[in-house]
Amino acid sequence: MRLEEIFQKVPVIGEAYLTFSQPENFYLTGFRSTFGVTVVTAKGDALFLTDGRYFEEAKKQVKNFKLVLWKGWETLKEVLKGLSLESVSVDPSRLSLANYRKLQEFIQVVEAPGFISQFRARKTPREISLITRAVQIAELSLKSVLHLLKPGITELEFRRELINAFFKFGGEGEAFPTIVASGPGSAIPHWQTSNREIKDGDVVIVDFGTVYGGYVSDITRTFLVGNVPSQMKEVYTVVKEAQELGVSLLKAGKACKEMDSAVREFIASKGYGEFFVHSLGHGIGIEVHEAPTLSIRSDQVLQEGNVVTVEPGIYIPELGGVRIEDDCLVTVEGSFLISHVIV
């Protein structure tokens, strides 16, 4: 976390930045809680407010922030008054409408979309280390249960074994609801894992990730079980080549939309353009979806220190789908593959 850099940039958006967001609070303070308010001012003040459930633990863990015991909205009102603030900036996508309106009752609220996201997009060495460990745990977990992925096991049974393995290898649980999609279900990108039994000839997509030290991994592997239709074997080859192309294009300074377009054009050249229905990838960190977004609609540019997924997919209704996703560190020279092929 770059607190000094944030202090320097707060004046661009106003007198202070305020957030209720759990991920932003964790990013700024290093403390995980379900409730908290962080205030960072242009004058260099840093305050963290939390309630009685977390206050004593926060005193042990939170450094470089003045701690305030939250007793209600009046507490925040007095804190902002004590800082002589006439306005606070907030990210509207990170604030509930109820809290937005409550703030407006006693202070001017200025919108600053994506203010903290710009800092979170560029990972520090420590953050990269935590993400790397989350990736390693996820991969070890999948390898340990892969022998179970065969005809007769249900999607939910395999998901349960994989989640249990996360804890066994040191993870903190699922980074998101693990997807196990087999047969026709694999043609639905965000299939709801079901009691369907995996059958011979199925394509099985496993989209999984765990949490370590508050940071996530996000990996997808597609498996061909038994006598898979020849077209799906072809689709797998196309997606694998598209994914390798996407990884090879990663580089600081590259426009995100250009990367998405290049991979999309490749898939279209193979005759499957209409079946690639989502963006190429996204940043990961504290959350599974962070900046930047590798999308044809994105105006973002890759920066050194971004950690992003590259995950092209082809989904043919009623037949099946293939998605391959890796986590990659963006560098000035290209990229470094954090996740690796699982055999």
Rank of each mutant, 00 (worst) to 15 (best):
R221S: 14
I284D: 12
F266S: 08
S217V: 06
F276K: 01
G313T: 03
V206W: 07
N227M: 07
S279N: 13
G226C: 11
L280K: 01
G320L: 06
V308A: 06
R297P: 00
L250H: 07
G273F: 06
K270V: 02
D327I: 00
E241N: 15
L250N: 08
V203D: 10
V322P: 09
G285L: 09
E244K: 14
D202P: 05
H289Q: 12
S261V: 01
E304V: 02
L280Q: 03
R221D: 15
K254I: 12
E304L: 01
E274R: 12
L294D: 14
I314A: 11
I284R: 09
T210V: 09
V247I: 14
L302W: 02
L250V: 05
V238P: 11
V225S: 09
Y272S: 11
H289W: 12
K233V: 13
G253I: 04
V288I: 12
G253Y: 02
P229D: 14
V288F: 04
G313H: 05
N227S: 14
T309S: 14
K240A: 15
G201Q: 10
F276M: 14
F266P: 09
Q243Y: 01
T293W: 04
P292C: 06
E274Q: 14
T220M: 13
V239L: 05
L294M: 10
V288Y: 01
G321R: 00
H282V: 10
E311C: 11
E304M: 00
N306P: 09
E244G: 10
K254G: 06
Q300P: 01
V277E: 06
T220D: 15
Y272R: 02
V225F: 06
R221L: 11
M232W: 05
G209S: 09
G321H: 04
L250R: 00
T309M: 07
G214I: 05
L245D: 05
C256S: 13
C256D: 07
V288H: 01
E265N: 13
G209Q: 04
V307W: 00
I316K: 00
T222F: 04
T309P: 10
Q300R: 07
V263M: 08
R221N: 15
D326K: 03
V225I: 13
V322Y: 01
S269L: 04
F266K: 03
L224S: 08
I314C: 10
V308M: 06
F275L: 04
G305A: 09
V216P: 13
N227C: 03
P292K: 02
Y236L: 11
L319C: 07
L294W: 04
V228P: 12
Y315A: 09
V216T: 11
N306E: 02
T237A: 15
V322H: 02
Y212I: 03
D202V: 01
S279P: 04
I286E: 11
Q303I: 00
D218P: 07
P292D: 12
G273I: 07
D299M: 08
A268Y: 00
L250I: 02
M259A: 05
K251A: 14
V308C: 06
G253V: 04
F276H: 10
F223I: 02
D200C: 04
F275Y: 15
T220I: 09
G226F: 03
E234V: 06
S217D: 12
D207Q: 13
E265V: 06
D326G: 15
R323G: 11
T293D: 12
